[in-house]
Amino acid sequence: MPPDTLPPVLEARGLTRSYGAVTVVSDVSFTLAPGEALGVLGPNGAGKTTLLKMLSGDVRPSAGQVLFAGVSASDLPQAARCRAGLVRTSQIPQPFSGLTVWENTLTAALHGGGLHGADAEQAAHDALRRSGLLDRHALPAGQLSLMGRKRLELSRALACGPKVLLLDEIAGGLSDFEVQDLVALIREINTSGVAIIWIEHIVHALISVVSRLIALDFGRLIASGTPLEVLASDNFRRAYFGDEPPLELMP
């Protein structure tokens, strides 16, 4: 079956989040097919991270719900969603800096992966190898470079055994070469069958992996469709460029 006829692995239904009087995500709905890669675009403060955090369970929606594999995940805390295969990486990497790279990844395999003993070690090893950190397994995570920390976020997420991976600006702040490496890695993860939702400001990196885009502005879903459709849409152009016509939009 082509992906769009499979039942969605993840679905957002009318997700809304307010802080006091301010609504930062407003009535956002979309679906994600198994194995699909979906990109999220939007200006700073559009509510992208908040949306992702509602999916992963660290922010409670003010309204709406999240369905994971067809069932409501609303009552599942973040750790339980992680164990079920809905895993998020952080916009600001959160290494366990007193632990080694190996211990960081093993913690994810034991807890998020729900594995024990040799199985957990195997999963941690595979995750480190895939994310290119195997040679740094004994390094304290606090000594990793920014790129190393981004890799560690991915390595830990992989060790949890994700079905859906939520990536929050994982390529932000990196050099072009590093972004290329990361894009290859994310593409490999996606082709191995993991569905991905990826927030990224680096449009050319994003659309080299994802097959579909959604765009947010002021917490609202303003466009959705193939990358070309979204990037060319009036709503999207207005959100980024105001009413002036862009000089050069296409990458």
């Binding site: 660290d58 992680c82 959160q94 913690t107 994810a108 807890h111």
Partner: peptide, 24 residues
């Protein structure tokens, strides 16, 4: 034990620990 790694993860970053499935 597995709990110990979870603990040290919490100590270093509680949001990070939650994100890798530690029941903090």
């Amino acid at each position: 034990s597995c709990t110990g790694l979870g603990l040290m993860a919490i100590r270093d970053s509680e949001p990070g620990a939650q994100a890798v499935g530690v029941e903090t």
